[in-house]
Structure formats: structure tokens, C-alpha cells
């Protein structure tokens, strides 16, 4: 009796296994922490809709590129275009990286609404964060010391800001205050008249004032056209032109649902 039962259980589990194995393909994503949220919500959506298993790891853009070259991931997510060295390494291994732009990532530089400063250059902002400029009057504002607010080093926004504004090899000064989320940066800037901070474009509202950078105001249009300087495209890289499920996944940003998810996460649709 018991033996029969066991047999039955074994048979059942076997068929169950076979059933779940039907969608053969698993899509593996690896790379940028900035693209991470988009990749994750795409993955959840994709699994729900098509029953395809999607795994997402966030090990940084460089590691994503490495994974694609080594063949350990299907799609590499990068917050920057692939470097020449990476492309060369890929070609050597017979991998042909093809880029698809997922979304645009734009950062607004924000100040207190009462601050008369309306526009700054990228160099000025970089100097403020580096500590070379410490008073608002040096950038055409009132005579008041600047309270510099940045994000925790683990944030993708902080990474974008460092790459796009502060520049490589320049250190943000130690006395800069660090906040843990877009929300708390906004709350600090909106309650501190002499503060400066940066936010993902989706987080800007009336409680803070975004300033023009190099003469361009940040909004969906200027970010999309590429004229706003503190913005960058985010990429999915595949080996060769994507096909099948991978193509379906890479094309998600073109669908209405994909667009919805992207703008919900504070990014800008291409």
C-alpha cells in the first residue's frame, strides 16, 4: 500500500516537473544597479505574462559586460555604452554585442524654492560638490554658505551624478550631507533654504526648485532629446540581434505596459 502511494507521489512529481519545464528558456540579466529596478519589474511582469523565468543580478555595469562576454548572461544591463576595450574583448570571443536603449535616466539639480539661483553650469555644480565653491554668492545667489546634500554611495542616482556632473577622479567633499533616498533628499532641500541636492527626474515637485544646467531646464522633453546634460541612456546589451523570448523582453520598453513601468520608476521613455 505504502509502496504504491510512494510510486504515485513519484509519478505525480515527475509529471509536475515535466510540466513546469515546458518553457525551456530562462533569461538571465546581469549588470548595472541603476537599471536594476527596471530590469526587476520587467522580469516580474514577463514571468507573470509569458511564464518565462527571468533572473536579475545587479553587479555593476562593468560586471554585466563581462558576464555577456563570458556567456554567463543573456542580457547585460549597462548604464553607459560599452567601452572599446570591452567591445574588442567581445569580438575576440566571438560575441557580437548589440545595444538597445531601454530608457533615459535624468537627474535634476534642485535648490530651495526661495533660492534666486536659476541656472548653473556643470563646472559650478561640480565645484560646489567638490568644495571649491562654498557660498551661494559665488554662483550669483545670496551671501550664504551652501549646504551640500548627496545620496548614499550605494545609490544608482549617486553613481549617475558622479559620472555625469562631478567627473571621474574628483572627490565629493567629506562635509557633504548624505541622505538615503530621493524622498529624504527632497525633504531636506525643501526645508533648508541654502541647500543643494539632486533627484531622479520623477521625484521633482513644487516643494523644490530644479535649476537649469548649462542653460537647459530638466524635463521629459530635454532629457529625451539629449540636450539636458545630466542625463544618460540605459542599455540592454545582447549577443547578436535578439530573437524569440529575448527579443520579446528587449522590446518591452516599446509596449504600453513597459512604458508605464519605466515612468513609474522615475525614468524617461525613449
Amino acid at each position: 500500500m505504502i509502496k504504491k502511494l510512494l510510486l504515485l507521489v513519484a509519478l505525480l512529481s515527475f509529471t509536475a516537473e515535466a510540466g513546469s519545464a515546458a518553457p525551456v528558456k530562462t533569461v538571465v540579466l546581469d549588470g548595472s544597479t541603476t537599471v536594476g529596478p527596471v530590469a526587476k519589474s520587467f522580469a516580474a511582469y514577463f514571468t507573470r505574462k509569458y511564464g518565462v523565468r527571468v533572473s536579475v543580478s545587479e553587479s555593476g555595469s562593468g560586471n554585466g559586460a563581462k558576464s555577456l562576454i563570458n556567456g554567463s548572461c543573456t542580457i547585460a544591463t549597462l548604464s553607459r555604452p560599452m567601452k572599446d576595450a570591452e567591445l574588442a574583448a567581445a569580438r575576440k570571443k566571438g560575441v557580437n554585442p548589440v545595444a538597445t536603449v531601454v530608457a533615459m535616466d535624468g537627474l535634476a539639480i534642485v535648490v530651495h524654492p526661495s533660492n534666486p539661483v536659476r541656472a548653473m553650469t556643470k563646472t559650478q555644480i561640480s565645484s560646489i560638490y567638490n568644495g571649491r565653491i562654498t557660498n551661494w554668492k559665488q554662483v550669483g545667489g545670496p551671501n550664504a554658505n551652501i549646504v551640500v546634500i548627496q545620496r548614499e554611495s550605494n545609490s544608482g542616482t549617486a553613481e549617475s551624478f558622479r559620472d555625469l556632473v562631478v567627473g571621474k577622479g574628483v572627490q565629493i567633499k567629506g562635509s557633504a550631507e548624505t541622505q538615503s533616498s530621493n524622498g529624504s533628499v527632497k525633504s531636506r532641500v525643501s526645508s533648508t533654504p541654502t541647500a543643494i541636492g539632486y533627484l531622479g527626474l520623477g521625484f521633482v515637485d513644487r516643494s523644490v526648485k530644479a535649476v537649469a544646467v548649462n542653460g537647459v531646464m530638466p524635463d521629459v522633453k530635454t532629457v529625451r532629446s539629449g540636450s539636458y546634460p545630466v542625463a544618460r541612456p540605459l542599455y540592454f546589451y545582447t549577443n547578436g540581434q535578439p530573437t524569440g523570448v529575448v527579443k520579446q523582453f528587449v522590446d518591452l520598453p516599446k509596449t504600453a505596459d513597459g512604458k508605464g513601468m519605466i515612468s513609474e520608476l522615475g525614468f524617461v521613455n525613449r
Binding site: T33, E152, N154, S175, A176, E177, T178
Partner: peptide, 30 residues
């Protein structure tokens, strides 16, 4: 305020500082 610097002058309680516990909590994620 979480800013990793020693206040200027050293007894200035009106500047932002950063503590061990906050650093552990903040940096653990990444």
C-alpha cells in the same frame, strides 16, 4: 546628516556628522 568629516572646530555640534551605526546601516545594501 551623515557627512564623514570631523567638524570645524572639533567641538562644533552644529555641523553634520556621521556615526558608525549609521554607516553600517547605510552601506550594507551595496
Amino acid at each position: 546628516g551623515n557627512s564623514a568629516h570631523i567638524p570645524e572646530p572639533w567641538f562644533n555640534y552644529l555641523e553634520a556628522i556621521r556615526t558608525l551605526t549609521a554607516t553600517i546601516a547605510g552601506d550594507m545594501g551595496e
